[in-house]
Simulated assay, not measured.
Amino acid sequence: MKKLVIVAHPNIESSVINKRWVNELEKHPDHFTIHNIYTEYPDGKIDIEKDQKLIEAHDALILQYPLYWFNCPPFLKQWLDDVFTYGWAYGSKGNMMKGRKIALAISAGIDKEDFQEDGEWKVTIEQLTLPFKTTALYTKSDYKGHFVLYDSHNAPNSDALEKSAEDYIKFAMNI
């Protein structure tokens, strides 16, 4: 089955990293369905049933986003709140996420060295993504970890952008 990639970038057209990743995903239409929630729902009104059916049609879910203030963009959080409903994603009768694979793809502007407990920000990417892992556990999903491009502000000026696109596809294919 194909993997559903939820792209949550508030301005994908001006993005370098996330737009490049989407372009790479588009080369593999047999493997990935791309669902850009900011483009799909410019008014912020999510079609919950439509997105739940979209998730149901895939065996894996990848949440792709730029790190914003050490978190995901607000619309991705709203999307999770709205789509992962009681009775569908969790609860006594909510089992639609059970066993479904979930992974993250994150572009982070900060150096990897700064995302250490003894680094500048005293926090790791694992700690920052813990709410996603916990959500997966709560919904009985299969959390597959994360792919991160650190220092993404400098990536467009180096070979890191192309390498990240290649590495991202390898990561996503193996989920």
Rank of each mutant, 00 (worst) to 15 (best):
M96F: 13
M97Y: 05
M97A: 05
K98H: 13
K98M: 11
K98V: 14
G99L: 09
R100K: 15
K101W: 00
A103H: 00
A103N: 06
L104D: 12
L104Y: 00
L104G: 07
L104C: 14
A105L: 09
A105K: 00
I106F: 05
S107F: 08
A108Q: 00
A108D: 10
A108E: 03
G109M: 07
G109P: 01
G109I: 08
I110R: 07
I110H: 03
D111F: 01
K112T: 04
E113R: 14
E113I: 13
E113P: 11
D114A: 14
D114T: 10
F115D: 03
F115K: 02
F115N: 06
Q116P: 13
E117K: 09
D118N: 15
G119W: 00
G119D: 04
E120P: 07
E120W: 15
E120H: 12
W121L: 11
W121V: 15
W121G: 05
W121M: 15
W121R: 06
W121A: 10
K122N: 15
K122F: 15
V123P: 02
V123T: 11
V123Q: 06
T124P: 01
T124Y: 01
I125R: 00
I125P: 00
I125K: 05
I125A: 08
E126P: 00
Q127A: 07
L128W: 03
L128S: 04
L128M: 13
L128T: 04
T129W: 04
T129G: 06
T129V: 06
T129I: 00
L130Q: 13
L130R: 14
L130E: 10
P131Q: 11
P131F: 11
P131N: 10
F132C: 08
F132A: 08
K133S: 00
K133G: 02
K133M: 03
T134L: 13
T134V: 12
T134M: 11
